[in-house]
Structure formats: C-alpha cells, structure tokens
Design a protein around this nucleic acid. Structure first.
Lengths: 211, 211
DNA sequence: ACACACATGTAATTGGTTACATGATTTC
DNA sequence: GAAATCATGTAACCAATTACATGTGTGT
C-alpha cells in the first residue's frame, strides 16, 4: 500500500525508469551523471532523491539490482529495468504532462526592478546572458558529439527534439536580453557598468529613488 | 532567531514584499489574485503559503496589518509594507538570483518518447501548443489593458520587460512545436490524431494502440 | 602521501501543495 | 434561497535539497 501509493506523482521514479530503459546496468551514481549530461538543462535530481527511489523501485519489482559483475570491485549496485518497469513507464508517458508550477526568480527580480538600486537589473540581465551563453556552447558541443556517436540510436530523434527546443529558447532569450539591456539603460541612471553618454543636462547625477 | 532565520530563502516573502511595494492595502486574497494577474505566468503561490508568510512578515515588522478601514466590513486584513520591508526587499533584489532547479515534465516525456506508444508524443505537443496559444492571447490582452491603464506607472517598464520575455519565449516555443510535429509525423506511424496522407497500403485502418 | 573521482547512503529541514474547515457578502 | 465570490486560516502530507557520514580505487 505504501509502496504502490508512492508512485502516484513521484517524478524522480520516472526519470530513473526512463534512463534505465535507454541504458541498463547503471548505478545511482551513473544515473545522476547521465541526468546531468542528457536532460540536465531541464531536469535535476539529487542523490538524496535517487538512492531511496532506487530502493523503492527495486522493492516494487520495476527495476532489478545486480551487484557489480564478475570481479565485484567497489560497492557498486547496477540496476536494470524490468518488464513491469517498462510497462509502468509506458503508462506514465501516456498520461498528459503536469505543468510544474512556474518559478523564475530572475524574472521576479526584474519585475520588481523599480525597487532595486540603479544598475541592479542590468547586472542580473548580464548574468543571465552569461549563463545562457555558457549553456548554449555546452548544448552545441553535446550536439556535435551526439550526432557523431548516437545518430543510429532509436532514441536519438527524441533527444534531438528536446535539444532543439532548448537551443531555440536560449536563442530567443538572448535576443530579448539585448533589447532589454537597451531599454533599461534608457530608463536607469548611469552606473559603473552602464555609463551614459548623453551628458548635456547633467542626467548623470540624477537619482530616481531617494528612499 | 526563528523569525529572522526564516527569511533566508523564502521566496514567497519577497513576492509579497514586492507586490506590497507596488500597491499597498492588500489582503492575502488580493495578493494571490494580483500574483495570478501580473507575474502569474512565471510565478505561483498558494494560500497555504501566503497566509502564514503574511503573519511572519508582520511579526518581523516588514509589513503592517490594518483591519479593514472605516466601515469594517468582512474580516478582511489589509497589509502594507514598512520602511524595514522596503529595505529588506531592496537587499534581496541586489543579490544574484538563484536558478530554481529546472523541471519540465513535458520535455521529459518527449525525451522518453521512444518508449511511449505511437502518437503519444504528438498528442503532448498538441496540448503544449494549445496551452501556449491560450497563454499568448491572455498576455496580449494584458498588454493592451496594461498599456492603456498603467503606462504612467513607474513600474510599467519593468513589467513590460518580463512581459516581452514571456511573449518571445512563447513565440519561439510555438515555432519549434511546428517543426517538432513535422519531424515526429515522419518518425512515428499513423494514428487517429496524426493521419498520414500517403494512403496506398491502407495505412488508414491501422491502429497503433489497442489497449 | 595526497587528491580526486567513484560510490552509497541517511537525517534534518524546508518549501510547498492540497484538502479541509468555516463563514460573510453579493448577485441572481 | 441558492450560487458565486470574497475571505481567512490550519493540518496532513510530500517532494526535494542539503549536509552529513563513510569508505574505495586511481592517478600523480
């Protein structure tokens, strides 16, 4: 009852089942690395979530654990998905996805930007850009490697789907960020990171919030 | 100690402070509606989170509660932000935003699409499109109203910033979704919701999911 | 010898949703 | 008088992170 019940909305279980359906004989440690290297930019899991879930899935017979093969070096547990696990995954895939409640702290801070000291919002956007650019190069490297190594894998088209989504979103966010910076530097007074050129009326010394 | 400590990473507190800094004399009920109508597409809060947080903020002196004015109708509590609250908000705005851990169940289901019955991924994408289109019209209506009513509000430029971000992301997602559908209908066999035109072999009568 | 990556797990805490419980006021 | 909306709150539950605790194997 407890075990079966626990499967209702535990998304972690399904990432694990999904990854094991793509590649078997993975340890908890492997799974975490695989997550970071494949779905990492839109999904995260911590060990504190992975290990207990592995135990539970094994107890339910959805995965099986085989202690490290032949020369059992290290205390490595290797998991593989069972037929029941496959069926469970397939069922879950068929039901409509749930929108995970939206929470974007970057946008929230931007939204309240008027209350911040001048230059703050611009700094946030710059950081945002940096992160996006780094992520974009990572994704592009992954694509090159993926195309070379896995293009025969039947999962490849689906991987590519999520990949192109990510790239498109990042590109559009980067474009937006440029216009956002242009807009903000017109609105906010000059700061070190945002030197205003239009001297004339002494706009430089103006402060929009006295507090 | 308990009270002060609780402010470390409780984002709910800052949404509340932020909204009260824009408009005072709001009740918990108001705040929730305001959230949905302004930052709703990138931020959500439930009553179970709002009411206790209001109490805590009041106990810390960051907001004050005034029981409904004059003719005290209903049991309505009206909150306003204090100078201390303003300061706290400003401090929070100045520190770098935290990336909330990414979790996109839609993408996750797409990623494992190979394991799903044929047609499932296409259905998810269609649902995705519907949601995006509905959201887009909502945002566009909000923009028309916002421009008419609040364009003098000093917060307006910041609101517009997050708004244009949302619109840009949605547009790019919609574009992607078209190519995604095209790609998938080439990969997956025909289903009711995805009729293949190339008739010849009687593909029409094929059912991919018996269940 | 030391650092680093491999490897597994637990406990404490928290952030958050959902469901429940209650009642007033407005509108039809 | 019924239904919808306004309005406030609590309790149960759960999903998840973080920090802690421990130990092995590999490369330098």
């Amino acid at each position: 009852m407890y075990l079966v019940d626990s499967m209702q909305r535990n998304q972690t279980a399904y990432v694990i089942l999904g990854l094991l359906s793509i590649e078997s004989n993975q340890s908890g440690y492997d799974i975490r690395k695989t997550i970071q290297g494949s779905v990492g930019y839109f999904w995260g899991e911590s060990y504190g979530q992975i290990y207990p879930t592995l135990k539970r899935l094994a107890a339910e017979g959805l995965i099986v654990c085989r202690k490290s093969p032949a020369a059992a070096r290290r205390q490595r547990q290797q998991y593989s998905i069972t037929a029941a696990g496959h069926a469970r995954l397939k069922d879950w895939l068929a039901i409509p996805y749930r929108d995970d409640p939206p929470r974007n702290e970057f946008l929230l801070k931007l939204f309240f930007g008027r209350e911040a000291a001048p230059g703050i919002s611009i700094r946030h956007i710059r950081e945002f850009q940096d992160k996006l650019r780094r992520l974009l190069t990572t994704l592009q490297q992954m694509e090159t490697i993926g195309r070379a190594k896995h293009s025969n894998n039947p999962h490849f088209p689906y991987w590519l789907l999520t990949h192109t989504f990510g790239v498109a979103q990042i590109r559009s966010a980067l474009e937006w960020s440029e216009s956002a910076l242009a807009m903000l530097s017109a609105v906010e007074p000059a700061t070190a990171s945002n030197p205003q050129r239009r001297s004339v009326t002494g706009a430089r010394s103006r402060r929009t919030r006295a507090n």
